[in-house]
Amino acid sequence: MSDLNVMTPEESAATKAAVMNQVPGPEVEGQSPLHHADLESLAQQGPKSGGVHLRELKLLGHLTLRCNAENAEQLAAVERVLGVALPLQPLTSAENGAYSIRWMSPDEWLILVPGLETFDIETRFRDEMPGHYSLVNSSGGSTVLELSGENALEVLMKSTPVDLHPKVFPVGKVVSTVFAKSGAIIRRSGEQRYELIIRRSFADYIWLWLQDASREYGLVVEA
């Protein structure tokens, strides 16, 4: 038997579940699903004022956690790892610095963390979580777009049937829904700021859709 105390995080993780570090490291450049759109150049050369601001929060770590909301030990373990409790109320979210958790379903949460920390956090979950649970790194499957500005809400209202009126969609609320004939997880992250988590394979389509939908307000790309 090897000594668990002298194992590297990779070796110790391998003893608990089939996990691997999906990110080779900071020395290898990652490419987001919108790499080809070259948002950096658009941000430099494009308009600087407009009603809608768009920015990609790229290469984040996306972790899907499924566990039992009634298991106090699991809830405590999540709080030890992320420093913030799982949001148990439907359609709510919670944040601790760069870590954020979205309620997706009564037994499912989506956690976003900085990309290069993903494997470390995954490993800490394997160390801390008791009982029956599932943690899947789905970082490669999605990307995050942030829409802000005074007309961001209008652009979203063209794209989804969900009622986004501020009265029923407070800051912090999160919904998974249909979006421009595709799907998205929408979270209101500020008074006039919304975060869209979209599928990798739909990223280009949504990017084209958002450019079209925000044309009348003026689109400012940020990088």
Binding site: P90, L91, P106, P161, V162, T177, V178
Partner: peptide
Amino acid sequence: PHCAEYREEEEF
């Protein structure tokens, strides 16, 4: 009954 709110049929 899980999300505890009304949504459009399109989502179901």
